[in-house]
Design a protein around this nucleic acid. Structure first.
Length: 492
RNA sequence: GGCGGCGUAGCCAAGAGGCCUAAGGCGACGGUUUGCAAAACCGUUAUUCGCCGGUUCGAAUCCGGCCGCCGCCUCCA
């Protein structure tokens, strides 16, 4: 059985059948770079990272495109709307492009720490103004768009399928209109393809309709078309973008090209913080940098970025995830357990007895892999996939307790950790820096000096001194563990 | 007002008609181990899935009602 994914368009799980066998093109709505990335970004991009990783694990050749929105996006639906980047730039007294650059770096930095693979292509909206103008021209030629006062609007009434993704009809939408409607529009539901820029507007480009800037939804249509073709296999994004953003993308693209735009739509659900929507005004808005540093009043400690990743994988991408310090703390503990187990296996491999893998164990491992794949094939059930990883942890610890477990067996275990925990889930690392970087080596030697002193005290039965040393190290975040032969250390 | 989702142990969270007297993680408690810890291991921790009815031989899973929470309809991952 192959991979099944839930298609928001048909509202069913469907077997993935790419247009071109063995190759998958994916477009995911990327961030608007006007602030540091937050927990919501993490949920979305970790979810799609898992999709890409699993497809590659299955042997697909994947082209993963994720845009960077560095222009557009009015702050509201009325004509008076201002570009979010421009608003933020004015606050920080920087050029909008400088700001976009700064936050683009911040975005990639945090995604790297979450161990998300970089997209194959990260196209910028400002780098595709020409293509966007071309698409607007096409839509005007085909009669789907009209110009008024230097702005161009898409005439929703001309596109019969409008709203097919979110399953809304025009009447409902009109009844729900809450903002002031531009007098230029023929219908309140029409949306802007190109906006006229006032002379003092910084971000503007020449166009057949005068100076202006592209509308909110245009970039995704244009860039996905440019890099993945007129029909793409998978388009992903946050649930909140389903309407109007994705429905507008469909309208523009299909009106222009007369072919299906996206075969399979995927939407990840949202994050709440302590059961409330995360919002800047609610004092529960947590950026990833704050979470990693523990620099937020709702957090009791700093968290490993991979613990954040693990918390996200603990639930399903289509379920809402409630974020809390307690939940993150639990994820951190679980992650530590996995990490320590993997490290222990790798260490033991150097000293374990030679031999072929034990058949019974090999069989257990094979079953785990099958269970893991079955879970992932069922619309990426990472929660079950993760539980399989914990089964592997338990089995591994038992194997490690048995001093006779041979290298062949341990090697099979390590491979499974690498493939499932590493390649697919991205929570097991190929290498842990304990003995890697120069600083780590110095640190290791330093702590070992203290460990020797303490062990000397223990031999002398001076437990008061031994405990004092341990307590002092504990205070600075170093935990000692007395194993059978040696004492090891780790950071909290 | 319209559209959609959710409510499972102390916390997070899978499960979507019989394999469920409900995965997994965290926490807690008891035990093994330890100088004491930590780590690890073993065991215990929901006869029950918001509430009330119904369908069915059988429901956490389907249907109806009620209660509570959330998202979208405006930029937002």
């Amino acid at each position: 059985m192959g991979l099944k994914l839930y298609n928001s368009l048909t509202r069913r799980k469907e077997e993935l059948k790419p247009l071109e066998e063995g190759r998958v093109g994916i477009y995911v709505c990327g961030p608007t770079v006007y602030g540091h990335p937050h927990l919501g970004h993490a949920k979305s991009y970790v979810s799609f990272d898992i999709l890409v990783r699993y497809l590659r694990y299955l042997g697909y050749s994947v082209t993963y495109v994720q845009n960077i929105t560095d222009v557009g996006h009015l702050t509201d639906d009325a004509d008076e709307g201002e570009d979010k980047l421009v608003v933020a730039a004015r606050k920080e007294r920087k050029h909008p492009m400088a700001l976009a650059e700064y936050y683009t770096h911040s975005y990639f930095e945090d995604m790297d720490r979450l161990n998300c693979h970089r997209p194959d292509i990260s196209p910028r909206a400002t780098g595709h103004i020409i293509e966007q103008i071309e698409l607007v021209k096409t839509l005007m030629e085909k009669g789907y768009a009209y110009e008024v006062n230097g702005s161009v609007y898409f005439e929703v009434a001309k596109f019969a399928d409008y709203g097919k993704l979110s399953r809304r009809n025009l009447d409902e939408m009109l009844a729900g209109v809450r903002v002031e409607v531009s007098p230029d529009k023929k219908s309140p539901a029409d949306f802007a393809l190109w906006k006229k820029a006032e002379p003092n507007h910084i971000m503007q480009w020449p166009s057949p309709w005068g100076p202006g800037f592209p509308g909110w939804h245009l970039e995704c249509s244009v860039m996905s078309m440019k890099y993945l073709g007129k029909t793409i296999d998978i388009h992903g994004g946050g649930l909140e973008n389903q309407f109007p953003h994705h429905d507008c993308e469909i309208a523009q693209s299909e009106a222009a090209n007369d072919v299906q735009f996206v075969r399979l739509w995927m939407h990840n659900n949202m994050i709440t913080v302590d059961n409330q929507k995360m919002g800047k005004s609610l004092n529960n808005f947590i950026t990833l940098k704050q979470a990693f540093a523990g620099a937020h009043e709702r957090l009791t400690r700093h968290y490993d970025p991979i613990a954040v990743r693990q918390l996200i994988l603990n639930s399903h991408y289509r379920s809402p995830l409630d974020f809390s310090d307690a939940a993150l703390f639990a994820a951190q503990s679980g992650y530590q357990k996995i990490t320590e187990t993997v490290k222990a296996v790798r260490k033991r491999m150097a000293t374990a007895v030679e031999g072929q893998a034990d058949k019974k164990t090999a069989n257990q491992l094979k079953k785990m892999r099958e269970k893991f794949e079955a879970a992932m094939n069922d619309d990426l059930n990472t929660s079950i996939a993760l539980s399989v990883l914990f089964e592997l942890v338990r089995l591994t610890q038992k194997l490690l307790e048995d001093g006779n477990t041979n290298v062949g067996t341990l090697n099979l275990v390590d491979v499974l950790f690498d493939r499932l925990g590493g390649d697919v889930l991205g929570i097991v690392k190929a290498e842990y820096p304990q003995a890697g970087a120069a600083d780590e080596q110095v640190m290791d030697k330093l702590v070992n000096v203290l460990i020797q002193q303490r062990n000397q005290a223990r031999e002398n039965k001076d437990f008061a001194k031994a405990d004092e040393l341990r307590a002092k190290l504990d205070q600075i975040g170093i935990v000692l563990e007395d194993k059978q032969e040696v004492t090891t250390w780790r950071t909290k």
